[in-house]
Simulated scan of single mutants.
Amino acid sequence: MSGDLLRVTGKVALITGGAAGIGRATAELFLEAGMQVIVVDNHPDRTGEARKALGKAMVIEADVRRPEDIARVFDAVRDRFGRLDVLVNNVGDYLRIFARFEDSTEEDWEALYDINLRHMFRVTKAAIPLMKASGEGGSIINLSTVEAIRGIPRASVYSAFKTAITGFTKSLSVELGYHGIRVNQIAPETTDSIQVTADTRVPEANRAHIRSWFPMGRFGRGEDSAGAALYLASERLSGWVTGIMLVVDGGVIAAGAWMRMQDGESFTHLPIIAADGYTDLSD
């Protein structure tokens, strides 16, 4: 890979939730492309491991849900680099809160707001002045999910905040375009990671069905979204791209309800098996 071709060599990128999953894959790819990378994560064990594995990356243990932690992170970035070119707002979680909306609580709503949207407002607000200061523009990349496009039962509040990221991304892209700052969104389908175990969660007897669930025949990998992030970070590749949602889903949204049959050729929009061995149907 040529960092010069991508025009990201020497660029400074901050990735929240960057010690594992999509964030970690993005940090690794950005480093490979020649960027200077700051990884922010609130898990001590993950940050410790990332500090050893990522070499030149600056790894900061911080919780982006806390304003004082965000201030500490940006003080460190300003002191060490004096600029910021790319922000990847990767943090997000459903917090294993699955409930009928009528049974959800305001405490659930607040927790989901903090981890999926409010921190994004705070981190982005702190990043913008540093991006503007260089006079060279920048790229803000917001991670959401395909659940921002389609419905997901028993996770209505989670979906609402992920959908809100779309409005935030589009509106901010218009606001910041004059300054050369591009704002885009990545919406992944289920991605195998520490946070969401996908492949191994499916019992062996049902794993043959994975090829039927996705047109591309598999769950997502961290590197799938990392590649999308590198595209959006590169002025050479996406310098006139702003305000978009880049869906990384193996063709799921395009397929709608259609799934491939086991013969590999036929398709159906009806359930193939009564239980997928993946979803908890206990209640």
Rank of each mutant, 00 (worst) to 15 (best):
S139G: 02
A53S: 15
P67C: 01
V157S: 03
S104T: 14
G243K: 13
T197D: 10
V39Y: 05
A148H: 08
E107F: 07
S234W: 05
V12F: 09
T190K: 07
A19M: 03
V248L: 05
D224G: 03
T200P: 04
N90T: 04
R182N: 02
R122T: 15
S282P: 01
A20D: 10
L29D: 07
L87T: 06
T191D: 09
T124W: 07
E102D: 12
K125Q: 15
A257Q: 15
V59M: 10
E49Y: 07
R211N: 06
H43K: 06
E235I: 10
G243V: 10
R260I: 01
T16Y: 04
R78N: 13
L29N: 00
D192F: 07
E204N: 01
V86H: 06
Q262S: 11
S159K: 00
R51L: 07
G227A: 01
V40C: 04
A228Y: 12
M259K: 15
I272K: 05
S238N: 03
G92I: 11
P153A: 10
R122C: 14
S104Q: 03
G167I: 00
G82L: 06
D283N: 01
R80C: 05
R201Y: 10
M259R: 14
R24W: 09
L172E: 11
L5W: 12
V183Y: 15
N184F: 14
R80K: 11
F121T: 05
D79H: 05
H179F: 11
Q36T: 13
I115H: 08
V39I: 14
T163Y: 00
G151F: 00
A275D: 13
